[in-house]
Structure formats: C-alpha cells, structure tokens
C-alpha cells in the first residue's frame, strides 16, 4: 500500500490529523535536505513535501522562489534529488511527495521520472501547472505506487466534483487566492469551501498556502485531515542555515497543536 494511504489510515484510526511540511530540495544543500527531512519526520511531520527547484515556479511566492534559486545556484539536479530520496529511505519510511513543475518532469522524461520515483520510494507528485484538463498525459502512465495529488482552489467552485472524483492520496485544498507564502490571508469563504470539498470525496483533504503561524492550525483541524506548512518552514530552514535542531524544535512547536 502507498505510504500516504497507510499514514492517513493510521491517523484516522487514532482520530488524528496529518502535519504535512515542505522543504526545497538542495537549500541549503542536498546533504542537509536528507538530514532536514529526517529531522522533520522525527519531530512529527506525518508527510514531507520535497520541492524540486525550477527556474520559473509560477505558483510560488517570494520565499520559495528565492529558496529554489539558491538551490539551483548550488547546482541541484533532478538526479541529485533522487539520490537524496534514496538517502532518506535508508532511514525513514515517512511518505514523500514531490512538488515539481511539469517542465522538470518533461525534461527528465515522464516514464523515466515515474520509474525513478517508484524505485527510490516517492509516494506522490504535486504538479501545480498540470491542471485537470491536462493531467491525463501523466495519469495514463501511473499506477498505485505514485499518486498524482489533486489541487482544489477557492475558485474551483463547480469544478470541485469532477476534480476530486478520482483523487488519490489526499486532496490539496488551496486556502488563498494567490501563490504560496500567503500575504493574501485566507480566502473569506474558507470554511464553506473546505466543507464542500469534504462532502464530495472520501479521500483525505489537506489545506495549505499561507499557513505561517501555529495559531492558524487548530481552528483548521476540525475541517480537514491534514494541514500543510510550506513557506514558513522554508524560511525557518533558511534563517537557521539548514540547522536540523532548530527545524526539529519548530516542527515540534507546530505538532503540539495536533495533539
């Protein structure tokens, strides 16, 4: 069974919700990425999103753009990221989800990319620029070993039903009108939006984009199966120059909200 499904099943059995955290692979370096992911998993992250840096990340705000640029400047390659996944897998079975822009997948070759995901132990893909209308060209090549995660936005409205119909792993609910890192604040109809998504699918739903403070977490938990924290974590990593202990402490401070 896919590690994402196993994790949500176990959490559900205990009546708990998932903490999903993000990290840009290769910032500050790929070696640190392995340590940072392991530190997060130990500190209580239930699922880890690993961003593969891309030159033109059009769904990302300033914090993640800058992290991706730093990573690229250090020469991070796709194969390097797969090697980091191998490194993580020798010590942890935490579910790993790539946040990857579609051109990265195309440049590597779709089959080859999926083959490597399967072999190294990547459980899911979030491809922000591959919407429902275009996803068949990936879905046709995929099986249960890697899930293509469905994104749903506040503007999706009447599309929600068809978007979540065959959702695998979890449904990624975008909490804001905007890009990662917030600034826009939550979309005003967030509660109704999450309730609507929840009512249309059996697949777990997680909410992300713009969640930067631990105070934001608790009110969201009753409405969702997981909360995603991205830019804030990337910022913590950057400010501490990739210090695992500081990240550990930060993740633990968030995790308390889930108890």
């Amino acid at each position: 069974m896919n590690r994402i499904d196993k994790t949500f099943q176990a959490l559900r059995a205990e009546g708990k919700k998932a903490l999903i955290t993000y990290v840009v692979a290769g910032d500050p370096g790929l070696k640190q990425t392995v340590d940072l992911v392991l530190a997060k998993a130990q500190a209580g992250a239930d699922i880890v999103e690993l961003g593969i840096p891309f030159s033109d990340p059009l769904a990302d705000g300033a914090v993640i753009q800058a992290a991706a640029q730093r990573s690229l400047n250090r020469g991070t390659t796709i194969d390097g990221v797969f090697d980091a996944v191998r490194g993580i897998r020798t010590q942890s079975q935490v579910p790993l989800v790539f946040l990857v822009y579609y051109n990265t997948v195309l440049a590597y070759g779709r089959e080859a990319f999926l083959g490597e995901c399967k072999e190294t132990g990547v459980d899911g893909l979030i491809i922000p620029d591959l919407p429902y209308e275009e996803r068949e060209e990936m879905v046709a090549l995929m099986d249960e070993s890697v899930h293509l995660i469905t994104l749903v936005a506040p503007t999706s409205e009447q599309r929600i039903e068809k978007l979540v119909r065959d959702a695998k792993g979890f449904v990624y609910c975008i909490s804001t009108l905007g890009i990662t890192g917030g600034g826009a604040g939550f979309f005003s109809g967030l509660e109704a939006f999450l309730a609507k998504v929840k009512s249309q699918t059996e697949t777990p739903i997680a909410v992300g984009f713009g969640i930067t403070k631990k105070e934001q977490v608790k009110p969201l938990l009753p409405m969702v199966d997981g909360v995603i924290m991205g830019s804030k974590i990337v910022d913590v990593i950057h400010q501490s120059q990739g210090d695992s202990a500081e990240l550990d402490a930060f993740v633990r401070s968030i995790k308390i909200e889930f108890e």
Binding site: L58, A59, Y102, P128, D129, L130, P131, Y132, E133, E134, L151, V152, A153, P154, T155, S156, E157, R159, L163, I174, L177, G178
Partner: peptide, 8 residues
C-alpha cells in the same frame, strides 16, 4: 498548463 486557481 496553469494552476487550478485560474482554470475557471
């Protein structure tokens, strides 16, 4: 090939 937010 755009984010879901602008599909509608």
């Amino acid at each position: 090939y755009v984010p879901e937010t602008i599909m509608n």
